[in-house]
Structure formats: structure tokens, C-alpha cells
């Protein structure tokens, strides 16, 4: 599988990555060579094989429904780039 420029642009859009026009060919080449590598998988017959999502095949443990986290707004927002009146600020969200 090899990619073209528009694939790269679409992927970058989905991943919310700005990329410079002049870097697109390099990305296209790199990503295509990676995809070529991973395409080796297609040689293996995996018919009927159950995908392995977790190495231990475990079951989810359930948490008791009790409040354990108290208000830590001040500490948690101390690392925030922009806040006001306890809110995180972002450029206007258009609904």
C-alpha cells in the first residue's frame, strides 16, 4: 500500500497535525515505506483467529461507586495554559 499526497493531508487533518507543504513528500515516502513493511502481514492466513486485544485475556474489574476524588481544581489547573473563573479557555466553540 502506498499513499499519495491527499491521503497524507487527510490523515494529518484527522490527527489534527499541521504539516508544512514542503514536508508532505517526505511524510508520504516515510509512511508509504512503513505501510509496505506492515503489508507483510497480509501473507499470513489469519482466518478464524480471534484478535488478541489484551495479552492476558483478562476481565474488567469493577470499582465500587463511592466518591474518592475531592475538588482539586486549583492544583489541576495550575498547569493549564489558560483559565478564567475555573473554566479552561479555548478559541470560540461554534455549535
Amino acid at each position: 500500500m502506498s499513499l499519495d499526497q491527499s491521503d497524507v493531508e487527510r490523515i494529518a487533518y484527522l490527527a489534527r497535525l499541521a504539516i508544512d507543504e514542503q514536508d508532505i513528500p517526505q511524510y508520504t515516502e516515510n509512511l508509504s515505506s512503513i505501510l509496505q513493511l506492515v503489508d507483510e502481514m497480509q501473507a499470513i492466513d489469519t482466518t478464524g483467529v480471534e484478535p488478541l486485544a489484551h495479552p492476558l485475556d483478562g476481565e474488567q474489574r469493577l470499582r465500587v461507586d463511592e466518591v474518592s476524588e475531592m475538588n482539586q481544581r486549583e492544583q489541576l489547573q495550575s498547569v493549564a495554559p489558560a483559565t478564567e473563573e475555573g473554566l479552561f479557555l479555548v478559541p470560540k466553540v461554534i455549535e
Binding site: L3, D7, V8, I11, A12, L14, A15, R16, L17, A18, I19, Y27, N30, L31, I34, L35
Partner: peptide
């Protein structure tokens, strides 16, 4: 897009893009 462009280096961007694809 600009935050992520500036904040991530080349290999991270490559892997994010491969994974996204």
C-alpha cells in the same frame, strides 16, 4: 493543529499518522 505540530517531533508525528491511518 499548530499546538500539535509544534509540540510533537517527527517520529511521534509519523507514528500518530500511521496509527490514524
Amino acid at each position: 493543529t499548530r499546538t500539535r505540530k509544534e509540540g510533537f517531533g517527527a517520529e511521534v508525528k509519523r507514528r500518530i499518522m500511521v496509527g490514524t491511518y
